[in-house]
Each structure stands twice: as C-alpha cells, then as structure tokens.
Design a protein around this nucleic acid. Structure first.
Length: 562
RNA sequence: GCGCCCGUAGCUCAGUUGGAUAGAGCGUUGGCCUCCGGAGCCAAAGGCCGUGCGUUCAAAUCGCACCGGGCGCACCA
C-alpha cells in the first residue's frame, strides 16, 4: 500500500525534524493522508502542517517546507511539494505505481484487500421480516445491503455471521393463524365477517385453499385450529421468504427464532438481571426499563400490566444473547421507520454489558418504484404488495441488486423499473458488466493471435525477475491513471468497511469502468509491437480482476459475453 | 409539541476523517468507427451546495436557528 508508505515518510520526516532540533518536541499525531481530487495536487496529500501550526506557533506554509526539507522520499516519490496554504503534495513515481500492479498480481486480489477486521467476530442481522407475508421491495433493499456489507466485511478480515431473526412468538403470528382460519371458514361456505386488522393479502386465501386441497386435518376446537394454522401458515410463508431470498442470491448462516429465547429462559434471565442491577422498576402494574438512565429517551415497558412481555423485552434478551455468543460487533439493519427504537436498545446493551457502542444500526430508507416515470404500486391499502419476487422477475437479480446499492442506505431510493430493464449505457449495471465482457472479448481475440493471456502473465512475471518488465511500456497518462484507479480499490473497500457503506463500491466500479471505456476508445491493445501488446494485456488482466471481484462482492454476475 | 433522516446542475444522485478550482449519469446541443464489441467515446452548456448566524487556517461536510420534504413518537408488533 502506497498510502501507508506515505504515512511512514511523513512520520520519519517529523522524527528527523525533532532530532535536528527543528521541532522542539516529539510530534505524535497520525498524519492524515488523503487522495486529492483529480488534478494538479499530486497522488496523495497531507494536512499535517496545519495540525502542527498551532503547536509550533508557526505559519503552516513554513512548516510544510521544513518538513519536506527533512524528508526522504526518493524511493517512492519523484517530487514532494508544498502547496496552497500549507498542504504537502506527494507525486508518486510511475514505476512505483506499475510495481504495485505486479504486487497485486503476486498477492492475488484477495491478498491485496485490507485486513482491517483482524478476525473480529461480527453478527450482521438483516431482513428479519415477520413471516406473516411475502417480502416486499423494501426488504429486498435491506437484503441487498446486508448481504453486500457481509461480503465486504468478510473480504476485510472480519469473521462474519449472517442472521435472520424470526419473530415467531408474538401476536402477529397468532393473527396470521386467525386470518387463515377465517379464510378457511369462508372457503368452507360460511358467511363470516373478515376483520380489518387481519392480513388482507390474497396469499392468506391461498394458504387456506391449500389446506382444503390437501385435505389437511384441522383440529375441531377453534383455538387449536387457529394455533395449528398459525404454525402452518407461518412456516409456509417463511419457506416462501427463503425461496425469494435464495433467488436473490442471499443466504443466511442462521435463522434465529424468537421463541427459542423464551424456551431457553433467556428472556426471564435477562429481565432478572436488569432487576438485580436496579435498571427496572414497577409502575401501574407494569415493569419498566430505565432507558432514561442511559439515553435521551423515555422509560419503556418490559412486562405489560396483563403480564405479557413486550417485543422490547425479547429484543434485549436477543441482543444480550448475541454478545454472549462472542460477537464483538453487532450490525442490525432496520427499516428507517424503526429509528426511534435505537436509543432504548442501545440503553439496554449499556445496562447489561456497557456495550452500547458495539451495536451499529443501519437504517434502510423506503423504496419507491417508478414505472413510466411515475410512482407505482405503493398503495397503502392493506394487502397490496409490491413483492421482491415481482421485481426480480421483472428486472432480474443483477439489476435489482445493483440498483439497491446505488444509494446510501439512509436515503430514499427511486427504483426505475424501465431503466433497470434497459440494455444500454443508461443502465449502470450493463455499463459495468459490458466493460468486463469487452476485456474478455479482447482476450478472445488475443487467443486467435496465438496469445494466451494466462501464460502471458506467468511470462511477464519471469521477465520481472530478470529485470525487463513489460509494464515499463505503459507510459500514457490514461494507463497510469488506470493503474492508480485499480490500486484505489483497496481504499474504497476499506472505506466501505469502516463506514458500513456498501454503496461506495458501486460508485467506484462505475467510475473505474468509465476510465476503461475511455482508454479503450483511444488505445489499441492488440496488434501492436509485441511487448507493448503484452504490457497492455497485463493491465487489462488486472483491471478485469478488480471488476470481477467488485461485482462478486456486490453479488452481481460478470458474464464474459453479453 | 418532541425526536430521527433528507435538501447539491432541469431530473436522479455522489462528494472520504472538515481540505485546495464542486462531481457523475440522464436530459439538451454538437462531434467520433475502413480499425480489439457503438451496450462505447469526446466536447459544450448547466451551481447562492435550502436560508441566516457561528466554530475553524479551512465548511456542501461541524454547531445553533429558521424554511421545505419524509418518517417516527403505544402497556402495537
């Protein structure tokens, strides 16, 4: 990593300044090195002079000059310049850039990616839709974001577990049972009123019809029948959800049932623990948690006056259980309408384990479907669904996943169905995939010229050892820029992981691929002088590795032909 | 009333830990293959970064107030 080398160079320079007595004392700040906006400010820049200025009581421009004078950068940079009001800009040697290309080849793309996680155990919980109806498009967005985030964390050295939490103990499942029972009686010819608060979707009728069709024996007692149907419908719906997720390319390591928390006494244990520590109290025949002790929020009910436990109670138990399973970082993806729930849950983790910061909640904003430029199918009328399944069959997995990741997750997303279906440059999915197909096409043509790209790579590796490296012939600005862009994959992935923001990868890929398309248009790869062709093929080889890896993390396919 | 998110080009949106002259796609206008895939490329036009005040060497980014949009504020799940 060149950036790390730059940080070292700066630190060394500061040490030199101290030794020579230029600085009165040891400088102990981590210099911030960033990639400047494209332009004349070099490959990297640091603001360290600004940070030192108040301490040394000197003008930042002067400090920048002093630091540079005491800097040994010749191994990495062709020049280092003071700029602006006190920036220090680093211009990395082209040879170094080219060298990193070979280094990435040596280490492989996986070895190249950062190891920020260091094996840390992460539990990422997402979707977690109640099994009372099919997944809708909002769940799809959560599924895409969660799955890709998991991929990113896995690729940066985290030990990741993906989990789906099933609320199977609450009232909703009971209502699903009652709904199915009511529909079942209707189908049996009874004239009954179907209550407003029951599930309105047609899938309930279908479930009831199935029961009749397959002659499933129904208990005669009404309560037992409802209970039976709750179990039946719940597992059927859950199965459907799993099938939809599978089609979407999302697989979970665990499905964790709320009911197991009760069966294993974890909820009662947790409540007892809170009571012992004095974080709960009784009022109006209910048991309350002292949220206000930890967060700017009101106290919340754990056990209602009728003796029933709230969802909050089991959620606390669930998250405590996550910590006890050894997870150090808990990532939850919730619909943004649940944002008000964050403080109380964090408060509970603080109360139980002083670990409120180990919980990171990512909010998923709403998705609006657009068709013919107009919002579509978002009726609030009960029972009207715009299901994930429908969207998938309309636009396919690749476009759906890619589109869900084109916005940061806490921003509204307009999902343009027409655009997602287009096979043109307007559709960014195809734009990215097309780049890969184009490179592959060049490789196919190369093969016709008797060049096998894989053997070529091995060859260039040997040449490197002999000191005559083909990549020396990559001299144009476009080529160096492409190499830099390839190298920045590292920073992008690191940023995605640090901020838990997978959308950055999507933007990076679009940008990277744009550089390639531009390069392709002005530069001929094949049928040049043989060493030049070789050098350019090598560049494309590494570029393709990054594109494929990026798409792989997004869970989007990278076809060789389109 | 209280809280959270959002406000950047005509539209949809990026903008790194606060950094230098604000970025892309679409749309508009005008160009580019005898040539590795035109599902592509190049160029132009387009901006009070919602408004005001503050913090800072430096603010689209942080703080406060206001305006506008969305969403929450149950002994619901």
């Amino acid at each position: 990593m060149i950036k790390k080398r730059i940080v070292e160079i700066i630190k060394e320079a500061c040490d030199n300044c101290k030794e020579k007595g230029v600085f009165p004392y040891e400088i102990n700040i981590d210099p911030i090195v960033e990639i400047p906006r494209e332009g004349e400010f070099g490959d990297y820049s640091t603001n360290i002079a600004f940070l030192l200025a108040p301490k040394l009581r000197k003008n930042p421009q002067e400090i920048a000059k002093t630091v540079i004078q005491n800097m040994n950068y010749n191994d990495t940079c062709e020049k280092v310049e003071p700029a602006g009001k006190g920036f220090i800009n680093f211009y990395v040697k082209d040879e170094i850039w080219k060298q990193t290309l070979m280094d990435i080849y040596e280490s492989g793309i996986d070895g190249f990616l950062p190891d920020a996680g260091n094996g840390k155990k992460v539990l990422i919980e997402f979707v977690s839709a109640n099994p009372t109806g099919p997944l809708h498009i909002g769940h799809g967005r959560g599924a895409a974001v969660g799955d890709v985030l998991a991929n990113i964390l896995k690729n940066t050295g985290y030990n990741v577990t993906k989990e789906y939490y099933i609320n199977d103990a609450g009232k909703q499942i009971a209502t699903l049972g009652a709904s199915t029972y009511a529909r079942w009686r209707e189908l049996k010819g009874e004239d009954i009123e179907y209550p407003q608060h029951f599930y309105q979707g047609d899938y309930v009728k279908e479930l009831a019809a199935e029961l009749i069709e397959h002659n499933v024996p129904i208990p005669a007692n009404q309560d037992e029948a409802i209970k039976f149907m709750a179990g039946y419908s719940g597992s059927k719906v859950m199965k459907g959800i799993q099938e939809d997720l599978e089609e979407f390319g999302v697989f979970f390591d665990n499905y964790y049932k709320e009911s197991t928390l009760y069966e294993n006494g974890i909820v009662d244990d947790t409540l007892e623990l809170l009571r012992q520590r004095g974080f709960s109290y009784e009022k109006d025949d209910a048991l309350w948690f002292k949220t206000s002790l930890f967060e700017k929020d009101e106290d919340r009910v754990l056990i209602k006056s009728d003796g029933e436990k709230t969802y909050f109670a089991s959620d606390i138990a669930y998250h405590r259980e996550k910590l006890e399973r050894g997870f150090k970082l808990l990532v939850d993806l919730w619909g943004s309408d649940h944002h008000g729930y964050i403080p109380r849950l964090k408060a509970s983790l603080e109360a139980l384990a002083e670990q409120k910061d180990s919980l990171k909640v990512i909010l998923i904003q709403f998705v609006t479907l657009l068709k013919d430029g107009k919002p579509f199918g978002m009726s609030t009328r009960a029972g009207q669904f715009t299901t994930l399944k429908e969207v998938l069959s309309e636009v396919g997995r690749d476009a759906a996943r890619f589109f869900f990741l084109m916005r940061k997750s806490d921003a509204h997303l307009e999902f343009d169905l027409d655009l997602a279906k287009k096979t043109s440059n307007e559709n960014p999915v195809f734009y990215v995939q097309y780049a890969n197909a184009r490179i592959q096409s060049i490789f196919r043509n190369a093969e016709e010229d008797g060049i096998d790209v894989d053997t070529l790579m091995a060859e260039s590796r040997r040449q490197k050892a002999e000191g005559s490296i083909n990549i020396d012939l990559l001299t144009s600005k476009d080529e160096i820029d492409l190499i830099k862009a390839i190298h920045h994959f590292y920073d992008v992935i690191e940023g995605c992981a640090r901020n838990l923001e997978p959308h950055r990868l999507t933007f990076y890929l679009i940008d990277l691929v744009g550089k390639f398309h531009s390069y392709y248009n002005k530069t001929r790869v094949l049928k040049n002088e043989v060493n030049l062709t070789t050098a350019r093929l090598l560049l494309l080889f590494m570029l393709q590795k990054v594109i494929k890896k990026g798409l792989d993390i997004l869970g989007v396919s990278a076809p060789d032909k389109m």
